[in-house]
């Protein structure tokens, strides 16, 4: 039973680490600012969810520590709730500050409508 749970926990944490790696690779390799932001969303969605679920199971089942379990759940929840607000304002701020990709975008409705 416990060995089986260890495997589940390890798989969850490995999934989280994989998506965090993908997000960082995306930040390094994507062509422009907005696409880098898109890739970074991978880190704080499935990366955080995987790590937090793994840590939550570990805290509940193996450590049997309710205080840490609640704190881990709250950390995950707060990251998920605050991340989109930061993303909105960074993307909008970057666009307002005049940052444009080198290669023109396929469509730019915001630029078209604000002229």
């Amino acid at each position: 039973m416990l060995a089986w749970l260890r495997i589940v926990i390890d798989v969850l944490i490995a999934c989280g680490a994989f998506f965090a790696l993908v997000g960082v690779l995306g930040i390094l390799r994507m062509p422009d600012t907005f696409c880098r932001m898109q890739a970074s969303t991978c880190v704080n969605t499935l990366g955080v969810i995987g790590l937090c679920l793994g840590a939550l199971l570990y805290a509940i089942v193996l450590k049997q520590d309710a205080g840490s379990a609640v704190k881990i759940a709250l950390i995950g929840l707060l990251i998920l709730v605050t991340n989109p607000i930061g993303a909105h304002s960074i993307a909008k701020g970057a666009y307002k500050a005049g940052i444009r990709p080198e290669k023109p975008m396929e469509t730019d409705d915001l630029g078209r409508d604000s002229e």
């Binding site: 995306g26 969303t41 469509t107």
Partner: peptide, 17 residues
């Protein structure tokens, strides 16, 4: 997104809709 990043970030067509 993971497929796009691991495929070398060539397969992107960014745009604001």
């Amino acid at each position: 997104m993971a497929g796009r990043v691991l495929g070398g970030c060539k397969n992107v067509k960014p745009g604001i809709v």
